[in-house]
């Protein structure tokens, strides 16, 4: 038996909303330590990795007697989650050899209980081994700032060049009709930690990425006040949104390589 009771249905809603356009079908791997999801987009350029730890406070109850994989169409799941109120407590439930995933939404006042079942799918997805490496540069910034940068620069071109150096980070776009550049200076003196821009630099990195994917990743902005970008030359960028009281959602994007 698998049963996970999440105190905030809005968290799961936001996760699925941020994933469903790039990653339509995905396997939720459930174990006693929590729920993970790894999926590639159809062009095999981007990868998402979600981790929700069972021992974090976001779960009121968590039980997973044996490891199970729940193959779910995320577009359908998003439709089901739209039936839940933002403050509802949400319970996910499945048997040990499941064909069905059950969603139970309990309203805060206890007056309404909704139950939805969806059929599970057999999804043959390739799991990749993501190496645990140290990155040359880690930039932490307000998540809405990153969203704005991606959105602004995507008006002018398809790819952004991210240039991390010791003063800060530059985002540049050069399109056929014009070009743009946004410089972010390191700023760790502002009061609120979530408003800070910090750059941990071991080595300078200059790398180009497709804006289409970065813009898609920023659909996760409402999950977290901050986002971190981890870069190493000629390797995928990691865009990580911490999820309070649960874990994190990471996106990996393969770089554009100069010919």
């Amino acid at each position: 038996m698998f049963e996970a009771k999440m105190l905030q249905s809005s968290v799961l809603k936001k996760i699925i909303e941020s994933l469903k356009d790039l990653f339509s079908d995905a396997n939720f791997d459930c174990s006693s330590s929590g729920i993970t999801l790894q999926d590639m987009d159809s062009s095999h350029v981007a990868l998402c990795y979600l981790k929700l730890r069972s021992d974090e406070e976001g779960f009121e109850d968590y039980r997973c007697d044996r490891n199970i994989t729940l193959g779910v169409n995320l577009v359908l799941m998003s439709k089901i989650l739209k039936c839940a109120g933002n403050d509802d407590v949400i319970t996910l439930r499945a048997e040990d050899e499941p064909n069905i995933l059950t969603f139970i939404f309990d309203s805060k006042n206890g007056e309404r209980v909704s139950k939805y079942d969806i059929k599970l799918m057999e999804i043959d997805s390739e799991l990749l081994g993501i190496p645990d490496t140290e990155y040359s540069c880690v930039v932490k910034m307000p998540s809405h700032e990153f969203q704005r940068i991606c959105s602004n620069l995507s008006q002018l071109g398809d790819s952004v060049t991210v240039d991390c150096h010791k003063e800060g980070v530059d985002f540049k776009v050069a399109g056929e009709q014009g070009s743009g550049a946004i410089k972010l200076k390191q700023n760790t003196t502002v009061d609120k930690e979530e408003d800070q821009v910090s750059v941990e630099l071991n080595e300078a990195v200059t790398q180009s990425f497709a804006l289409k994917f970065l813009c898609a990743f920023t659909k996760a902005t409402s999950l977290s006040d901050t986002v971190s970008l981890s870069l190493t030359q000629d390797t995928p960028i990691v865009v990580e949104y911490p999820i309070a009281q649960h874990g994190y959602l990471r996106f990996y994007l393969a770089p554009k390589i100069e010919e």
Binding site: V45, L47, I130, P236, A254, I257
Partner: peptide
């Protein structure tokens, strides 16, 4: 600018 690489080129299949 540049050629789009695949994520599978960086992370091994498990």
């Amino acid at each position: 600018k540049g050629t789009q690489s695949k994520i599978t080129a960086f992370f091994p299949s498990e």
